[in-house]
Design a protein around this nucleic acid. Structure first.
Lengths: 196, 196, 196, 196
DNA sequence: CATGAATGAGATTTCATTCAT
DNA sequence: CATGAATGAAATCTCATTCAT
C-alpha cells in the first residue's frame, strides 16, 4: 500500500502525542483504542509501537509532561520573596491562565489518574502533592503573619484548587469571558468571599 | 466464594447495584468488566442479564437514582421562602453533607458522564442543570436584592459547586474533621473569602 | 450464526484435547495457532477459553496426562519382585508397546518440553526422572547381582530409552512390522548386542 | 549494546550464524524472533536482511551446512575397504565424537526438521537418508558375511542412531565422562548387549 | 432465576519483512 | 551496510451478550 503521506521520525511521535491528547480528553483512556489513535495519526496500529512501548506509556507521558511543566512554570510565576497575599494572587492568575490554555492536559491529569498503573500512579501523585504544596505553603505563611485567614491551610488549598480547576470543565475559548475576567472574578471570590 | 444458594430475587439486584457502585467508583466504568461485577455479586456473568438489560443500564441507573435523590433532597433542605443568604448557607450545608455521605455516587455521577450514551447523557445533564439552577437562582436573587456579590451568578455557582464537590476526592470519614467542621470551614471561605 | 452443531460441555473439552494432540504433533506447539485449534474443534477461538485458561495450559495438560499415565502403567507392567533381567524384558515390552500406540503423546512430551514455562517444565522433568528411574533401578540391581553388564546404569538407561523411544519417529501402524516383532528385535539388540 | 561501529561484512554474517545457532538450540526456531537474533548480534532487525533472505534461510543454512559436513566427515572416518565390524566401530566412534562436539547443530537438525518448508525439508531429509544409508550398508554387509546379527538392517540402524544421537540431550562437556569413555560404553552396548 | 457454554467482535501487541535515507 | 520507521497480517486473549438447559 506504499507509504501514505506518513510523517517520519519525531514528527510521528509528536502527532501521536497530539492525537492521544485529544482522543483521551474526549473519550477517556479506557474508552479509546489504539486503532482509533493510529487512524488519527494516519499509520497502522502496529506502527505505534515504533514510538511507544505500550498504551499505558502514552498516558503516562502525557500526564508526566504536563505535571513537570506545571511545576516549572508555577515556580516562575509565583515570586519567591513576595508577601503571601501577593503570592496568592500570583498563584491564582497563573493557575487560571495555565488551566485555561491547557484544558485537555489538565483534565486528563485529573480524571485519568485512576488509569495509571501503580508505579506511574505514585510518580504522578508525588508531583501533584508538590504542586498542591506550593499553595499550602502560601496559605500557611499567610496564616502565620496574619494576612490570610486559613485555620486549615490544607483544606483551604484543596478548596481553592478545586474551584479553579473546575473552570476547565465548562470554559470555552470562544466564550463570553476573557481569561483576565475569569482571573478577576475568581480572585475576588477567593479573597473577599461572596457576602457583601 | 459461591454464595450459598440464597441471594435470590430483589436481593440480587440490590447486591448488583452495591457491587457496581463500589467497582465503578474504584476502577471506572470502562475499566470494569461484567465478570468482575458478577464475581463480586457471587453469580455468573450471564446471570446478570436476569436483572439488568446491559452494562450501560447499570451505570445509568446508578447515576439517575443519585441525581433524582439529590434534587428531591435539595428541595427539602433549602427553604423556598428564606432570604438568599440563608438559602445559600442551607445549600452549602446540604451539599457538603450529602456529598460526604455519598462520595461514590457523586464521584461517579461527575466522572462517568462521558461513558453515558447520547440519550442517557442528555437526561443526566438535564438533571444536573436543574441542580445547578438551584444555586444559580439563589445567587441571582442575592445579587438582585444586594445581599450577595455575584456579578456573574452562573460562574460563581460553578466555582462554589466545584469547590464543594472537590471535598469528595480527599475526604475520609475516619479523618480528623467532622462534617460540621467542614461545613463551617467552607461556608466561611465562600461567604467571607480568605483575606483578613 | 446460531449454534453450529457444537458439541457441549465435557465433549468440547475432549475435542479440544484430541485436536490439540494431533495439531501439536504435526506442527509443533509454537507453530499452531488457537484459530487452527478452534477450527479443528468447530468453535470460535474465544470459546476455547471456556475450557482452558490459555495456550500453555493445553500443552501442559497433554504432557502431564501422558506422564502420569505412563508412570501408572509402567508400575503395573514391570513385576516388582521379579529378577532384574525379567524386569528389563518387561520394561522393554511395555515401553515399545506404549510408545507405539501413543506416538503423538510421546513425541510431544519429548519435543515440546522446551515450550513449557518454568514451573510446568520443572513438574514434567520431575515425572520424567521418575520414569527413567524405573529403568535405572533395574539396571542397577542387575549390575549388583551380576546378571546385567552395566558399569554405568544411568548412561545405559538413557541409551536404551533413546533407542526405544526413537521407534516413534518412523513407526507406522500400517507398516511391515508388528508390535511384537519390534519388541523382539529391540529386546535382542539390547540384551545380546549386534555382534555374532 | 551497540557494537562499536565494527563487525562489518562477513564478520556480521558469521555473528548471525553463531547467534542463530545458540538461540534456536535453546528456544526453537518458531519461538525465536528476528529481533532477539538482531539483539544478540548487536544490529537492528532490518539489517539482518542485508545478510540473509529471510528467517527460513537462516534455519536452512544452519541445517544444510551441518548435514553436508556430516557426510563429508563420515566418509573420511569410516574406511571404505575395511571389514563391516571395523567399519561399525569406526562409525560409532565418529558419530559419538561428532555429535558431542556439535550438540547444537545436531539437536537443531533433528528437532527443527518440522520447521523447514517443503523444498528445504525434502533436501535435508535426502541428506539424512544418505547418512543413515552409511550405517545401513555396514549392517547389511555385516549380515551378508555373517559377522553381524541384523535380520533387519534398517531397523537396527535406526535403533543404533537413536541411541547414539540421544547422547546429545544429556551430555555436558564438563561432565564426569570423557568422549572416549562414552564411545567405549556405547560400543560395548551395541556390540555385545547388556546381558552377561 | 442461575448456569455453562457459545458467539462475534475487537483489543493490545508481536512479528517478519520492506525500504528510503 | 546499517538504521529507523513503516506495513499488514496475525496471534492471544477479553468481553458483552445470548440462550438452551
Amino acid at each position: 500500500m506504499a507509504r501514505t503521506a506518513g510523517s517520519h521520525g519525531p514528527k510521528t511521535m509528536e502527532a501521536i502525542r497530539k492525537a492521544a491528547l485529544s482522543l483521551i480528553y474526549r473519550k477517556g483512556y479506557e474508552a479509546i483504542t489504539l486503532r482509533q489513535l493510529a487512524d488519527a495519526v494516519g499509520i497502522q496500529p502496529g506502527s505505534l509501537y515504533n514510538h511507544v512501548r505500550n498504551k499505558q506509556d502514552i498516558l503516562f507521558d502525557l500526564v508526566h509532561d504536563h505535571m513537570t511543566t506545571l511545576l516549572v512554570e508555577v515556580a516562575e510565576a509565583v515570586p519567591a520573596d513576595a508577601a503571601p497575599r501577593a503570592q496568592l494572587e500570583g498563584f491564582i492568575a497563573f493557575h487560571v491562565g495555565y488551566h485555561i490554555t491547557r484544558r485537555e492536559q489538565v483534565f486528563i491529569a485529573n480524571s485519568e489518574l485512576r488509569s495509571l498503573e501503580a508505579g506511574n500512579h505514585a510518580a504522578i501523585v508525588a508531583l501533584r502533592k508538590k504542586y498542591e504544596g506550593v499553595l499550602i505553603d502560601i496559605l500557611r505563611r499567610g496564616a502565620a503573619d496574619g494576612s490570610l485567614r486559613a485555620e486549615e491551610p490544607t483544606i483551604a488549598a484543596y478548596a481553592i484548587l478545586s474551584m479553579l480547576t473546575g473552570i476547565c470543565s465548562w470554559y470555552q475559548p470562544s466564550g463570553r469571558k476573557s481569561a483576565e475576567q475569569l482571573v478577576t472574578l475568581h480572585r475576588d471570590l477567593i479573597l473577599r468571599g461572596i457576602v457583601v
